[in-house]
Design a binder for these strands. Structure first.
Length: 464
DNA sequence: TCAGAATTAAACATGG
DNA sequence: CCCATGTTTAATTCTG
């Protein structure tokens, strides 16, 4: 990621109102992260681009915290205005920053300054995936990013251009006409091309995001007391785990990670460069050799992710093949016969939005019916589990409430469990990180050490 | 060092 | 005309 800071500040604001809103929100909730944890992480995390040492690791754990917890609120749509971490830290309603310590203040300050370690593609992906209907208008994507990464609230507005650029250019994202849309505003909806979801998840994982699988659409069967537990596979260890074990397992990953893993989890932000572009936008890409392209994205094949979702495990139509620009472009035509399940992602949406692929891409798109039907069902059920808000209100209103209540309860239970698990995991991770950081930054300033100490003490207290 | 991926900036078109 | 959205190109930066 290039420095956003370098963007010309005199550019006109694209959405003037939002910054204020989010800025103030961020100020009140402090990004909704564990304040003490982040206080250790944040203080010097203002620069992500260069020369980051020990602090950066903490910073990235910071993001890990946020996103882990976000995703552990499985089955609930991200509530932009309410951080998912509220629940964990404050027992439900208390903003994290209400425990006003010097840590939380510093953290709030720095959360606004530190740049997310995720590429725009991943940010967009996360936004879309956490939306109820798995598709969002650009504006909502902006909002999600602003809500979850307040850094952008204060950053120059070129990032929105980048977001749009990514949406247009990245094959992972597909434009969807919304015919009911006038009331919802202009512009199209954007969704994630299921075919490329594995890529995105892989990219997320590569970006110190062990819980990337949580961005996967939940399995077909609705959660119930009798439903079989979801099994997750920790990519680097090949362990198959029940969800209830994930806290311990992921904690193990954090605590016993190899240097490489540790770097992934705590180290310098790395953007995964695995996401396919829709076309070539630079001449030299056209005649670039395919030598390196075939060697990229090792994880997709080497570490198939159990994503509790059929398509995610299917990488046979491997987009990695055309993940480089030239190949991407050339494969477009051949991909016309390739199974396409985008529509399936929208199956539950198409009551609200009619899916009409854009002409530019429609030429190369057919949709796979078999997979679609399965996924449609799956998504329908998944969407049933999701909370309210967003675009699907009408259709839910049409449904009877009778079938909803038990699911809701179950969902709540699961959420509780997951939050708890995530909480303890993060505490462990926080301790680990704090200790590591203290060790490595032995030479660093006393002030910093003090903050780390506070952080560690906090976690130890919490554990006890 | 290099190729490719990602970011950033900018121009332009379109539609509300 | 303004603004949001979407597309495209180009330059730059970063990373494996």
């Amino acid at each position: 990621m290039g420095p956003v800071i370098g963007m010309s500040p005199d550019k006109k604001a694209e959405t003037p109102g939002v910054q204020e809103l989010v800025g103030s929100r961020a100020a009140t909730c402090g990004m909704g992260t564990l304040p003490e944890a982040e206080s250790a992480a944040s203080p010097k995390a203002t620069s992500v681009d260069k020369g980051l040492g020990d602090d950066e690791e903490l910073t990235n754990l910071n993001w890990l915290h946020e996103n882990l917890l976000q995703n552990f609120t499985l089955g609930t749509e991200a509530q932009p205005s309410v951080s998912p971490l509220y629940d964990i830290e404050g027992g439900g309603a208390v903003p994290a920053s209400s425990s006003s310590s010097s840590c939380s203040r510093a953290q709030e300050k720095d959360s606004l300054k530190s740049k997310p370690p995720y590429s725009f593609s991943l940010l967009i992906y996360m936004a879309i995936e956490q939306s109820r209907n798995k598709c969002l208008p650009v504006k909502e994507i902006y909002s999600w990013i602003l809500d979850h990464f307040p850094y952008f609230a204060n950053a120059p507005t070129g990032w929105k251009n980048s977001v749009r650029h990514n949406l247009s250019l990245n094959k992972c994202f597909r434009k969807v006409e919304r015919n009911l849309g006038k009331a919802n505003g202009k512009g199209s909806l954007w969704c994630v091309d299921p075919e490329y979801r594995p890529n995105l998840i892989q990219a997320l994982k590569k970006q110190h995001f062990p819980a990337a699988h949580a961005f996967c659409t939940p399995p077909a069967s609705p959660p119930s007391g009798s439903s079989p537990p979801r099994h997750l596979i920790l990519q680097d260890q090949g362990c198959s785990l029940k969800e209830s074990d994930i806290d311990a397992a992921t904690a193990m990953m954090l605590l016993n990670s190899s240097p490489e893993q540790h770097r992934m989890q705590c180290g310098k932000p790395q953007q995964s460069r695995v996401l396919p572009q829709k076309r070539s936008y630079s001449h030299h890409h056209h005649h670039s050799s395919s030598s390196s392209s075939s060697s990229r994205m090792p994880g997709v094949q080497d570490n198939p992710i159990d994503l509790s979702r059929p398509e995610t495990a299917v990488v046979s139509n491997d987009p990695k093949e055309d993940h480089n620009y030239s190949a991407t472009f050339q494969h477009c035509a051949s991909r016309s016969s390739v199974s396409r399940s985008s529509v399936s992602s929208l199956s539950s949406v198409d009551e609200a939005y009619e899916y009409t692929p854009q002409a530019r891409r429609a030429g190369s798109e057919g949709f796979h019916s078999d997979e679609d039907s399965d996924l449609a069902e799956e998504l329908e059920q998944a969407n049933d589990r999701l909370g309210d808000s967003g675009y699907g209100t009408q259709q839910r209103a049409a449904k009877g409430p009778a079938s909803k209540k038990p699911r809701k309860e179950v969902k709540q239970e699961i959420d509780e469990e997951l939050k708890e698990a995530a909480g303890s995991l993060l505490h462990l991770a926080g301790i680990r990180t704090c200790l590591d950081a203290s060790r490595r930054t032995a030479k660093s300033k006393k002030k910093k050490k003090k903050e780390e100490k506070e952080c560690c003490h906090f976690f130890v207290r919490r554990l006890c």
